[in-house]
Amino acid sequence: MNITLSRKKFIHGALLAGAAIVAGAQSVSAATPDAEKTAAIPMTQTWDKTFPKSDKVDHRKVSFKNRYGITLAADVYLPKNRGNKSLPALAISGPFGAVKEQSSGLYAQTMAERGYAAIAFDPSYTGESSGEPRNVASPDINTEDFSAAVDFLGSQAAVNREQIGIIGICGYAGMGLNAAAVDKRIKAVATTSMYDMSRVMSKGYNDSTTKAQRAEVLEKLSQQRWVDASAPGARVLPETLEGVSNPVIQMYFDYYRTPRGFHERSANSNGAWTATMPLSFMNMPLLTYIDEISPRPILLIAGENAHSRYFSEDAYKAAAQPKELMIIEGADHVDLYDQTNIIPWGKLDAFFTEHLK
């Protein structure tokens, strides 16, 4: 067996096993302002988002630690003219392989315009957050990242810690649902273009991976551990779309590799996940306890034409009441990343207004 696999071939064939990017007990103690200072890491201070800055919000960059000691970098958005009001708050992350300067930041800024204290954060090992090796994902650690963001929000004077919700986008929607199931401080959770990364990595799209194919992927991942898995890899998406006919790759390319959504720190825009990243997702189902989010509410939003729509539909079936599934007519998966005329801001606002009280 040749175990020194081509990075690009490995990522396409084994890394995500048909997943989105290529084929397209006690509460943690709340962080304190002093903890925020000790968690400081170098961060770009200039406005380098993929969306314009709003004059309706105040913005600052912050950092804080999760319970694994990893320092997370984040952007906090607060409505201007808020006075001394104690605000409802939202922790936001995703899509999978994106950074806070992309979709999650757009969501955070827009929800801040509507009166929320909102934080968009880079998950562990990605973007400006710390952690080595770079570009690693973990169903456990990335679930914890949401709770660490709740820790941070609950320590802020402007935030009512009894009114904290989360929004997860794409692959971090699954992690957000998992966080809500275990962290009872999260009062409501909304997702857009939800992916269950553990399901798609272990079973492929529409659960199409056979046992033999799964065994082959695990064999390749296991053998890859003999190789330097933390070495830089080939970029996830191709240089151009020449010769690419897969519509899912074309869709992701249109967001991540064009001026529409490109960001130099995004793994999907400009880099690659480590080759063995899928290992921890292969046998740790994220949504096992989704029914335990109840009686706290869930809002699942998906595009009518999204290849990922079935994840939201299946999560809706598995969740307990109160729950709601919203299908956006004519929208695909990536439209809900940044198309401000399609993302249902009014619905998100109404949902959190009702349930963060």
Rank of each mutant, 00 (worst) to 15 (best):
N2Q: 14
K8H: 12
K8A: 13
L15R: 06
L16R: 00
E36K: 00
A39L: 04
A40T: 10
W47F: 14
T50D: 03
T50I: 14
K56L: 15
H59I: 13
K61Q: 06
F64R: 11
F64A: 11
N66E: 04
G69A: 08
D75G: 07
L90Q: 05
F96R: 00
V99D: 03
Q102A: 07
G105R: 13
M111D: 01
A117F: 04
A118D: 10
A120R: 01
A120C: 04
E128T: 02
E132W: 04
S138W: 06
N142E: 15
T143R: 14
T143M: 11
D145C: 07
F146C: 02
F146E: 03
A157W: 08
A158K: 06
N160G: 07
E162A: 08
E162P: 00
G168A: 11
I169S: 02
C170I: 09
V182T: 13
K187L: 00
K187H: 00
A190N: 02
A190E: 02
G204M: 01
D207R: 12
E216A: 15
L221M: 07
R225D: 00
A231G: 01
L237D: 03
N246I: 08
M251E: 15
Y255W: 11
R257W: 06
F262R: 02
E264T: 13
A275T: 11
M277N: 02
S280R: 10
F281A: 11
E292V: 00
P295V: 12
R296Q: 06
I301Q: 02
N305S: 03
A318Y: 01
A319R: 03
P322N: 03
E324S: 12
G330W: 05
V334F: 05
Y337T: 08
Q339I: 06
N341F: 07
P344Q: 08
